[in-house]
Design a protein around this nucleic acid. Structure first.
Lengths: 238, 238
DNA sequence: ATTCAATTATTGTGATCACAAATTTAAGAA
DNA sequence: TTCTTAAATTTGTGATCACAATAATTGAAT
């Protein structure tokens, strides 16, 4: 039996103005999002500290924060790991996303002025560019930026942290969701959303967002397909 | 000018089997929930450590966790405080609760077997008892227990942490929500929910839960009333 | 009295150490 | 070999210390 699977984490240069804890947090968060840490693998403070070349202290804090966001799971034995995905859990996360995000979109609608609308149109264009370049990394980043810009139009908005928690738990699947585009022709739901915004049509906006999310995960439309994706990640589970 | 307002936190004896960090976490969480820490008041690690008679370390971890749950707010200056409430934010939190919780209820419905239903009926009875005794503390605790028992019937449920975050942010208002009962006669929405469960009527269940939440905050039905409640808490704000 | 600068005190961050609990490894018996 | 048990290692927790950044206080000058 070989030793524990090695952990490969993409490291970025730390901005001096940012605390080490914050840097560790976003590094680990990004690693989880991109599926670099496979579910079920036990994470130890000292190991991560060695990998990131920092003292155990900031790692401790970052792990606790990620656990509070359900990005990590603390087992009874105080062991920390990326939670394993199941088909049912995946489904729950998707439905929760649809529910929460269409809610957030509708609540943001009254606050979307022309300036914000132009920003959204601009962000949508940037997504198209990333799609033309097949840049999965950028597609995901800009897609999230689009959704965030929409929801945060509401100055009293309080759901974004909850939504981000769902994104985190969906983790690597968020990326897969954006890779579908070549396969089957899909309607541009973002455009549909933008039109609904111009018309101030809350229901249409909700439907567009819901469809956008649902179609993003269309690759998992059959239980078999979903299962293969999950197994692919959970290969090394106990 | 007198010194900073003192912080009074109800201390419970710590269970030996629980880590100090966990004890600090739930102590602070409870203090926030009951409005013992007034919004805007700066919280320092060392001050809390002294009050709770522990070292700064567990306080640090607990604060970070609570901040991740939006129960506390970390300002730019790294200062930690209980976020201030506004009428608009209050409204957003209520609507988010209604949306998320009726969603969670509907998703739990298919999993509610007779055993769970009996448990819910039992919990509802206990709420009635607490109401007869005018025990606000117990009313709130048992009310939350009822909702939790409902949502967690779904074994794949992933929304409870999000819901608990909303409860935390509503904080002391959750208690006010349960004090309305003497005032105006209200329909027993829990009973309505239980009947909907027996009929396996998802829509009726959602409506009952939504009404339960909305009527719980009926005291804030007019902007003036709500404002007075908020001001009462935020009296010492900058 | 008020404003502004300099000093002092306090704070969060991060590192290091100690220790008990848990895990892994090693060894011995069947 | 397979199971059980004991030793050794690793791990999370919590305490203490150092330090730079922030906040509070003091003082002088207007």
């Amino acid at each position: 039996m070989d030793k524990k699977s090695p952990i490969r984490i993409t490291l970025t240069k730390r901005d001096e103005s940012v605390t080490i804890t914050q840097w560790v947090y976003s590094t680990l968060r990004n690693a989880i999002m991109t599926g670099q840490i496979l579910p079920g693998r036990a994470l130890t403070i000292r190991e991560l500290a060695a990998i990131l070349d920092v003292s155990p202290m900031p790692v401790r804090e970052a792990l606790r924060q990620l656990a509070a966001e359900s990005a990590l799971e603390i087992q009874g034995n105080r062991r920390v790991m990326v939670p394993k995905m199941t088909a049912m859990k995946f489904n729950e996360l998707c439905e929760a996303r649809i529910n929460l995000e269409s809610h957030a979109a509708a609540r943001a609608l009254p606050y979307i002025d022309n300036e914000r609308l132009q920003e959204l149109i601009e962000l949508d264009k940037e997504i198209d560019e990333a799609q033309d370049n097949d840049d999965m990394e950028q597609i995901t980043v800009r897609n999230q930026r689009f959704h965030r810009a929409l929801y945060t139009a509401n100055p009293h908005q309080i759901t974004l942290p909850l939504i981000e928690s769902l994104w985190l738990q969906l983790g690597p699947f968020m990326r897969l969701a954006n890779s579908r585009l070549e396969e089957h022709y899909t309607i541009d739901r973002h455009n549909e959303a933008l039109q609904a915004i111009e018309r101030k049509d809350a229901l249409a906006l909700q439907l567009a967002i819901a469809a956008d999310i649902r179609e993003g995960f269309a690759f998992a439309v059959t239980p078999e397909l979903l299962h293969s994706f999950i197994e692919q990640s959970a290969s090394e589970a106990d």
